[in-house]
Design a binder for these strands. Sequence first.
DNA 1: CCTTGAACCTGCGGGC
DNA 2: TGCCCGCAGGTTCAAG
Length: 272
Amino acid sequence: MPELPEVETVRTGLEKAIKGAAIHKVTLRRKNLRIPFPVNFTTVLQGKTISGIGRRAKYLLFSLGKDDVLIAHLGMTGRFTVTNKTPVLLPHDHVIIELNDGRSLMYNDARRFGLMTLAKQARLGAHPLLSALGPEPLEKAFSAKYLKQELVKRSGPVKSAIMDQKLVVGVGNIYASEALFLAGINPLKPAKTVGDKSSELIATIRKVLHDAIASGGSSLKDFVQVSGETGYFQHHFNVYGRGGKPCFTCGTPIRSTRISGRSTFFCPDCQK
DNA sequence: CCTTGAACCTGCGGGC
DNA sequence: TGCCCGCAGGTTCAAG
């Protein structure tokens, strides 16, 4: 998936494109993504107005009228696009949401790690997908005091800690490496040993996410904006994907390793 | 409880 | 050219 900045960019794009639109018809071209579609999925959507599009962590929350919410997650390869006319179906177009104005909202997801399900607005926070999530990284609850208190509890690598959605949401594999580089922290260090860096780490997490949102979220080679235009590595990374290449700060070759199965990049000189 | 590794699934690029 | 392997933005479950 897209990490938080990409999801936020999709949210903004969808809000501009389809907020206020009414749903005419929904077609599911398979019975599940990562999880099954609810049995009443199409009937709940049909006839509803998309009254707003929110976000919690990497989940998109489509308000359907007053009471119902469509929860969507893009997984690794999920894409929403809005078509003007009757869509030409592409491979992995799994959901077609036809709007009353003749346009269609398409969901395409090659790997099907994404999901769509339904919730009631009144009980949204208690939904199993959302109830255990940590604070939003760009909001106040993610404070230096809170982060320190969480870090010192953990013996695993600090990178795993900041990618744990129970500690803080929205930080994925790319921005975890990038934030740790800016903070000068080696991603392999045990979380409990970097508690006194929590203030710097918060600042760099916010900076990398904020900058990515400002640049349109588009760091990923197959990330597609709602309009259908692709964002193709427009974003500048200091370390992610730069294994063996010289650090922009000191020239030392960027090292690549794996932490909890995820590729990880850091400068052995700048990050202690 | 905590942490790691595998699994989910498809496509793509590199090496042979 | 073609095949095989490894790898990819996330999350969840099992096993240690």
